[in-house]
Computed example of a mutant assay.
Amino acid sequence: MGRLFPLKFQSLPIFALLSALFLSFNFCPDLWAAQDAIVTEDQAVIYADEQMSAPVGFVRKGKKIKVGDISRNRAQVYPIIVSGKIAYIRVIDVSTAKETVDSKVLVAERFQKGANRDEEASNFAVSIFNFSSQIMMDKQNDVLKDKDPVNWFGASVRGGVKANDKWDFDMILTFMNAKAEKEVFRAVEFGFGGAARIYDKSRFKVRALGQVMAIPFASYALAEEFRVIGYGFTAGGGLSMAFRLGKNFGLEGFGGVYYTKLAGFRTPDPYQDIAPSFIGTRLGIGLNYVF
């Protein structure tokens, strides 16, 4: 009997060690194998659980990380070590040398994600706007004088393409008209613009934009006395906001500070030739179409 107790006492740690090894190999395989991955999403979310119900942070695009060799939750997430704890990152947000995507749901999600990006590659907008400006000129032909307010009303057509994940390239065509007592100004603008997306979600976007436009045609008229032709340019910048109402259509609003210079007006005697400038704010609203 004295020999049986030592034998049982010595077998206990061996059994516990074998059990621990068995559980480790069967329930924690991600601790034994890892692979390199590169984050492909702008901000890949890190989750505390496999079901992706508790986000705890994010990793920026281009970051090289270590993820588990075996994916979880129907191949939707990879395990990742964060501050000594196991967390999870979506498979579609990273690229690995060995990608094993067995989930049909995940394959469809990858396809849809790419399709959505392609849909947003180009956009088209039609808007109306008000240009509330102050005129600057050193000569006058009627009651309109230097630093008087001049309100323009216009319409614009804009076409845009997505240059990359942060920048858009725009082409703009506008027509605007202003009347101050008997004096009337008209201008056609055509030019280009760049826009940085500072907030970019699937249904709501905010862009910081800058535009430079030539004015190949402008006119200046005084009642029935004369109407002369000129030219000019416009430069300005501000913010635009777009809210998608459906798959393709949405609302767009914009506002900013603009400077317009007109020149080339040759008025008949006894009137003065003028080359006015206008500076002020433009506010507009319209419809956009994404395709």
Rank of each mutant, 00 (worst) to 15 (best):
K85W: 02
V257R: 10
R266L: 12
A196H: 09
G57S: 10
A97T: 08
V188D: 12
Y199A: 00
A155E: 05
G232Q: 06
S103L: 01
V105L: 02
D170Y: 01
V157F: 15
A87P: 01
G193S: 00
A34G: 14
L173N: 05
Q10Y: 04
W32P: 00
A75P: 00
T96R: 06
V45R: 13
L209W: 04
V157E: 04
D165C: 01
A218C: 07
N123I: 00
Y78A: 07
I86Q: 08
F190P: 01
G159A: 06
V59K: 05
V77N: 09
F131P: 04
L7C: 04
V59L: 05
F291N: 11
N130P: 00
L262T: 07
L31P: 03
K64N: 03
F25M: 12
V157Y: 12
N26H: 14
F190D: 06
A87S: 15
C28K: 12
D138F: 10
A20M: 12
Y47S: 04
S11D: 14
F169E: 03
F9Y: 06
N116K: 07
A223P: 06
D142M: 00
G284Y: 07
R90T: 11
G68F: 07
W167E: 04
K113T: 14
L262Q: 10
Y259Q: 09
K261M: 02
A33D: 12
M176L: 08
S71L: 06
G210W: 01
I274C: 10
G238V: 01
T234V: 14
K182V: 05
Y231E: 14
K139I: 04
R266C: 05
K201L: 07
I135Q: 10
D146H: 13
Y259N: 11
A48V: 00
A195Q: 08
K162G: 01
G194C: 00
S53V: 03
K139L: 11
G2D: 12
G154I: 08
F25N: 11
G284K: 04
D170A: 06
